[in-house]
């Protein structure tokens, strides 16, 4: 076996393998979303975030503009603290933007939907959203529905 030919073929093989890995990382995975764009981070407190996960999408008018970067629990106010990373190109959101947790489809994934307010000032890094609406918990919804029936019957 010609050494030179072997070496060239092995070189091609390793290059092909690395290109494949690179393609998986860049084109297939979400690497380009959170490494190329640091964006800015805002926080929002929710009463209930059940079903929401780190990396869940954050949308505005149905377009994804960021992701949930962290979920923690505030032990003093008994609320969930959600950190949201928004891509830097969307830097003109008003300060009084409100956040709600929605479900994609009836039983699908949870995501955060943002709705713009009318404030002149824009949201900055480390800002906090004041208006939030919690995750819809199906059991609570059903029990409220049933309760209202019982109440009606009593009247």
């Amino acid at each position: 076996m010609n050494t030179r030919k072997t070496e060239i073929l092995v070189g091609l093989f390793i290059a092909a393998g690395l290109v494949a890995l690179f393609m998986l990382a860049m084109k297939v995975s979400n690497l380009n979303i959170y490494s190329t764009d640091a964006g800015y981070e805002i926080t929002a407190n929710f009463e209930n975030v059940s079903g929401l996960k780190v990396k869940s999408p954050v949308t505005m008018s149905g377009v994804r503009i960021g992701r949930v970067s962290d979920i923690s629990f505030d032990g003093e106010r008994f609320e969930a603290v959600v950190k949201i990373r928004i891509e830097s190109q969307y830097n003109t959101l008003p300060k009084d933007t409100s956040a709600s947790i929605y479900t994609a489809g009836l039983l699908g994934e949870k995501y955060i939907g943002l709705e713009a307010g009318g404030d002149e000032e824009n949201l900055q890094d480390k800002d906090k959203l004041k208006l939030t609406q919690s995750s819809l918990v199906l059991e609570k919804l059903i029990s409220r529905f049933v309760d209202s029936f019982i109440d009606k019957d009593k009247k």
């Binding site: 093989f13 390793i14 393998g17 690395l18 290109v19 998986l24 297939v28």
Partner: peptide, 16 residues
């Protein structure tokens, strides 16, 4: 040891 991950990556990429 070196070849296997490269081959698997090629397999996945070509599969996609």
């Amino acid at each position: 040891f070196i070849s296997m991950p490269l081959l698997a990556a090629i397999f996945s990429a070509v599969g996609i």
